[in-house]
Design a protein around this nucleic acid. Structure first.
Lengths: 134, 134
DNA sequence: TTGCATCTACGAAATCATTCGTATATGTTT
DNA sequence: AAACATATACGAATGATTTCGTAGATGCAA
């Protein structure tokens, strides 16, 4: 067995609002506050300065990096989608399922429709894990 | 297709501290504040009146019911573990994975060790889902 | 019945997340 | 250069969560 991801412990837990912003940056790449605000506005009401403030705080926390060359700064996600989701899943499994990851999986699979292809991918991963066990 | 669980929308979202208490009650059944507090004390520092206050609030919210016959009240979880976890998963898939349940499953399976038996159970569920697709 | 242990009720502080208004800086256009 | 549009910085209100101290009720024991 190899050492696993202890670094997850040090990852900041983004709040819900912060996650919204990270999703925009992960999807669109480096963006200005205005661009992020416009994207967020499509799904909910949010003031421009609210988005700005959030991104400033996220920059302080180290969740975003920024380039301040021009008048309007350009922000970039400083944490990867994978690492962040890994950390979130860790916490979630712990708080909601008392550490039982397989219970979570069962719950999710039973509750959400997945496409044929998605099911295949999951099966494939399962077989792979099965082999590692032997 | 049948109507699915719209009632999930109306389920209160328990906070982290509230979830801790629900887990105790789900595991041990109806309990007094003292019993719950003793259980919680095993995993972390928490004052007696803190546990009491939390359970009073949860009672107000409808998360717990209580029997006030004797001097010390007996509390019972008023929401089921299944329903609660269903609601939590819904939110989590939405905020952390933008609705992609299969991405969540892949992330969890890749990240957490599951026993041979757990993997088998999951596979079985997958096959079942596969059949429903055809 | 007086006192002691234990309970509930409740107020309130501390922290955090979210929100936005206002002030000020910056750069562009006339 | 003056005016305008647009940017950042920042203070502060609000609401939710967690925490615990203190007061007062309750029941049992001496």
């Amino acid at each position: 067995m190899f050492a696993t991801n202890n670094f997850v412990d040090h990852l900041m837990k983004p709040t819900d609002a912060e996650l919204e912003i990270l999703h925009v940056l992960w999807a669109n790449g480096p963006s200005t506050v205005r661009q992020v605000h416009e994207s967020l506005s499509q799904s909910r009401d949010i003031g421009y300065t609210t988005a700005l403030k959030l991104m400033q705080i996220m920059h302080e926390k180290g969740l975003l990096s920024r380039d301040a060359e021009s008048k309007s700064h350009t922000y970039t996600a400083a944490v990867s989608e994978e690492d962040t989701q890994r950390g979130l899943v860790d916490r979630f499994v712990e708080t909601a399922f008392k550490g039982s990851a397989s219970k979570l999986v069962m719950q999710v699979l039973g509750q959400h429709k997945a496409s044929q292809q998605e099911l295949e991918e999951i099966k494939q991963l399962l077989n792979q894990l099965n082999n590692e066990h032997n």
